[in-house]
Design a protein around this nucleic acid. Structure first.
Lengths: 223, 223
DNA sequence: CAAAATAGATAGTATTACTATTATATTTGT
DNA sequence: ACAAATATAATAGTAATACTATCTATTTTG
């Protein structure tokens, strides 16, 4: 039934000390950290708490990730890789560029409400983590050195992918990358605001408003 | 010469234990923290380092702010208050709504490159701090309780101010708040990307590209 | 079955994010 | 000018965090 079981999302090897996919403990670390970061927020999350929640030890976790920052990077890179995969699936066999663009924007802006059964990872929780924590992986002083290690390539690929569709539709549009990264970051922020600071949004009732808004924004902007 | 010297930006009293404007030490804390956060980033910034950089003690700083998080909140709220003040100045006596909107967007998206002589605060450094650290004041689990204390009112006011101009121009536009908060957050991100992750933007050479991009975006969207 | 890799248990360190206490200046009200 | 109030400095201390190191037991693999 699960035709996807023979593929897996690859994450930059520099991010971890030992691949968490390679062992039972590694998988418990990933699952447990998603549960715990979602519950406590990244600031209050510690390896000690994670260790006790998965019945292991701090030292064992440190064999997989050199810091909690690296673990967060792993989760976010996995998510970006997963988004790219979903993007390719949703665009497969669609020829019309405008339709491709609409679909791409919807992949970038929709909130994840169902688990994909794609892996043992809970994508609904991971999406919530990405919404509130993802920007912390680059909004810091390590950004340049980690950029050199290629940490942000999946994000850049995602942006380039959608930018190319825009350029196909309107080759004269000057700011395709800016537009796409604005949409990705914007959608995450709007989902957060909708839940916590509603006066910064206009989605009184329906959550689809965010996706509609960005659909419209992109189409208006490039024509 | 400095006609502004008789006014000051008010910051929510819940943010501090004792007003840093009320004493010499308080002012040194603000100035020193702007220098140090700009230099080290918020993660590596500590009250101990701040104390030694301004020749005071950790315990003395704790009399003004109950945590470094509160100090960051203070700085960001001050900045938002200052932006609102600049906004009012730039819109003063301008009648034409479209011109008002253009000016408002430019206030929200331009990078600060000159000190305003408005106060003893270095706005150029504070702007850099806002670009990379501001979102951390709400992207955490304390957001709801701090929202109840009114921490984010200045941000909401700023968004409401510009939303009202949009609604004046096009009363049928459904998402004015979303558009404005997307512009504010987006511009900050783009400034950060331009410096650290240029492939996520399109501002090869000119820094004005960001402001132009958002001008265009807003005008296209509401008509 | 031996060698290698993996995980657990335990201990230890420097730093962080605070709190508490006391002593010494400095400001202010009369 | 002086007492009272307030602000600051100096010092000490604590629990938690973010690690590192080491040693042993277990599991996997060649």
């Amino acid at each position: 039934m699960n035709f996807q079981s023979n593929i897996s999302i690859l994450v930059n090897e520099q991010v971890y000390l030992k691949s968490p996919e390679s062992s039972k403990l590694g998988q418990k670390i990933i699952r447990g950290s998603i549960d715990l970061i979602d519950e406590l927020g990244f600031e209050d999350f510690t390896f000690k708490k994670l260790a006790s929640s998965i019945q292991s030890t701090e030292a064992s976790i440190y064999r997989y990730f050199e810091s909690k920052h690296h673990l967060l990077v792993y989760l976010v890179l996995w998510y970006w890789g997963w988004l790219e995969y979903r993007m390719h699936l949703r665009l497969a066999n669609i020829e019309n560029p405008k339709e491709r663009l609409k679909r791409a924007v919807s992949v970038l802006t929709e909130k994840i409400t169902e688990d994909s059964n794609f892996s043992q990872i809970n994508e609904v929780k991971l999406n919530r983590i990405v919404i509130s924590e993802a920007s912390k992986i680059y909004l810091n002083k390590k950004v340049d050195s980690e950029n050199e290690l290629g940490f942000f390539l999946p994000y850049k690929r995602l942006v380039a992918l959608v930018s190319d569709i825009i350029t196909e539709i309107n080759p004269d549009f000057k700011y395709p990358h800016m537009l796409v990264s604005t949409v990705i970051e914007g959608a995450n922020h709007q989902h957060f605001f909708a839940e916590h600071l509603p006066r910064l949004t206009d989605c009184c009732d329906d959550e689809d408003a965010i996706s509609h808004f960005y659909q419209e924004l992109v189409l208006n902007e490039i024509k």
